[in-house]
Design a protein around this nucleic acid. Structure first.
Lengths: 363, 363
DNA sequence: CGATCGACTGGAAGCGCTTCCAATTTGCTA
DNA sequence: TAGCAAATTGGAAGCGCTTCCAGTCGATCG
């Protein structure tokens, strides 16, 4: 038994002669240089000769050396704890796909960067929600935060963060916040316009729109894009039935119902996100309507569910995980460099996903 | 500006007199004891007087002291890196709800326990998949692994792990593995029986069953429970149309189609998981069948989608996140104690979720 | 050609914690 | 009350890494 184990070890998996992973000192010894030089070479800092770098790299390679993130962050005094704030509305779904995807994307990027990422839940309706974020920094344990909506629309919070020099990166921030803090997202307005154009191109003119939470920047932008498309098509925005929801499946069901029961039922319903679109679809099914014959429904996000329901949803693919990863990478860079966050915005690509919930109107 | 910031700091958020978090030395100084004593008291080790513990605790409390996990794990030489193995079949869906939930549940528990958790992707069809897990340990970076299906059915791997003393905990392991390694899951067979009974109670007798991946223990147990219910009801198992899928939505669509097009279409279709059930539902919709009038469909897992599709799915709620968290907690305990993993199995509760995809047969 | 400067490099001091080991105290026994 | 083991406590040595500081060395300048 032991023999087998040793055999495997001898086969040269790990680093040093023992089975334990190689340390920086092992690399230094093999390369015949000082520990400090290894550190410098590996973190490609200035003042390292090409020869030195080469030797160190080769030794590290030979030993299969991987720096111990614990020791590294301890030594560099960086409290490498990052936080992702989850700030749902009280009445929203408990575990929306949106936040789960955000969390997973950020978590993976954090693992790669060697940072810890914790999640802080803050009630969106709490008036002190901003202070809770600030407290995170003041307690000294947090080096930076990722702010998803609706916190990424909170200009006052952003201003405070900037003023005190606390690193923060936003997910889909509003224009006001975007001027203050870096962020990641995609062009919501262009996407909103594009899907609206697609609907219009099918020949729909009696439209319904399910808005997201009031003041939610992404949702407003999507709607602005919709309005833009409407204007370009020469359609009257007042003729559109607009209802305000809160991004949840439940609100989609309720508002979808209202929309269907209304005097003048639209032939196409555009929803600010997929959850609501799925809810509207649910409501339509309950009314025994046939989609897209009786009514077309489109969403926004391309949540996994959208391709599995019947009929599969035409929507805009939003790469949430990549956005979260981008935000985290930016945050890491800021924390590492110690520079105040410059308001850079990383735009991630999106694309329209055409499925079967959108078709020309019946008449 | 600075004034505001200082004011907040003075208001006593953090620990030491400066804004930085309190260290163990701050606590030791305040309590007037040695650093070592603080460490012992806080980790409630033996040989600490009640008085000492009291003093330390009070000082730590006063300073709002929280141990630095980096330093702790560095000093304790514990490579606190745990790994969750993702071992999907080549042709399965890329990001199934199941694994995402597993990951999130484990990730959160890991954060609480102060452990790092990384994810390793291994191809289920790779004959060397077991070795990859072993290598994780041999490289010296991993202290323990969580093995979800199908790895939790791999008795050879489990035996190797036990033999070498590598900590591992399984998700829904097979009986053979359960005898070797600790694990967490729920009583699949009882659940499988329960949902089958529910179907039978509605009056169905022409049944279809969509199996999961061959040899997948959970799936087999669910089927065994189904068979049990059948036997108790005095029904002939041979009269059931049984098709084998792979847990994916796509296989659900394909097999659902086959099932519906078959000579003798069942009045109720039982699926080994929700993804396949949703796929079958999708196929039924495409055939313009009405559910549950034309055919009842039930699933297994209670994935979020199950309550949002039409009609909402009758299924068994499987608390994946709690199972993952339980597995991680067990793993942490094993790693911390350094004891060989005893084969303890933690059973998490499940419950039947009755929705609208199950109804009496039409005839 | 010697002083000066800059680019590199090595030595050493910790980061905050655990843990081994020695020193001290305590609780009893004789 | 002396004497000894057990219980407790303090001191100190690192864990693996970064980083400050001082030294080395070759090249440049007057």
């Amino acid at each position: 038994m032991r023999g087998v184990s040793n055999l495997n070890m001898a086969s040269g998996e790990g680093g040093a002669e023992s089975g334990r992973p190689a340390t920086i000192d092992d690399v230094a010894a093999l390369a015949g240089v000082a520990r400090a030089s290894v550190s410098r070479a590996l973190n490609d800092q200035a003042n390292v000769s090409a020869k030195m770098r080469e030797r160190v790299l080769r030794a590290a390679e030979a030993l299969n050396y991987r720096a111990n993130p614990q020791a590294r962050s301890l030594a560099s005094r960086a409290s490498k704890a990052l936080a992702l704030i989850n700030c749902p509305a009280l009445d929203a779904e408990p575990n929306s796909y949106y936040f789960a995807a955000l969390e997973l994307g950020a978590l993976r990027a954090a693992a790669i960067a060697g940072f810890e990422l914790s999640t802080l839940n803050v009630d969106a309706n709490d008036p002190r929600r901003g202070e809770k974020v600030i407290e995170l920094f003041e307690s000294g344990r947090t080096a930076g935060v990722i702010l998803p909506p609706p916190l990424s629309d909170d200009a006052a919070l952003a201003a405070t963060l900037v003023e005190r020099g606390y690193p923060a990166v936003c997910i889909s921030p509003s224009d006001a916040v975007r001027a203050l803090l870096p962020g990641a997202g995609f062009d919501e307005q262009a996407a909103g316009k594009q899907i609206a154009e697609r609907v219009l191109a099918k020949g729909h003119s009696r439209l319904g729109y399910l808005l997201g939470i009031e003041g939610h920047f992404s949702a407003e932008k999507r709607f602005a894009g919709f309005l833009e498309a409407l204007a370009e098509a020469g359609l009257d925005p007042d003729a559109v039935t607009v209802l305000r929801g809160d991004f949840s499946f439940r609100s989609g069901v309720e508002l979808g119902q209202a929309m269907l029961d209304g005097a003048e039922r639209p032939t196409a319903l555009i929803c600010a996100n997929d959850d609501m679109a799925v809810g509207a679809l649910f409501a339509a099914h309950r009314r025994h309507l046939v989609i897209p014959d009786d009514i077309s429904i489109v969403g926004f996000d391309d949540a996994p569910i959208s391709g599995r329901i019947w009929p599969p949803l035409t929507t805009v693919h939003q790469p949430i995980r990549r956005i979260a990863a981008s935000a985290l990478d930016q945050l890491v860079e800021i924390v590492l460099r110690g520079q105040p966050p410059r308001p850079r915005f990383e735009t991630i690509g999106y694309h329209l996903v055409e499925r079967e919930s959108l078709a020309p109107p019946r008449d």
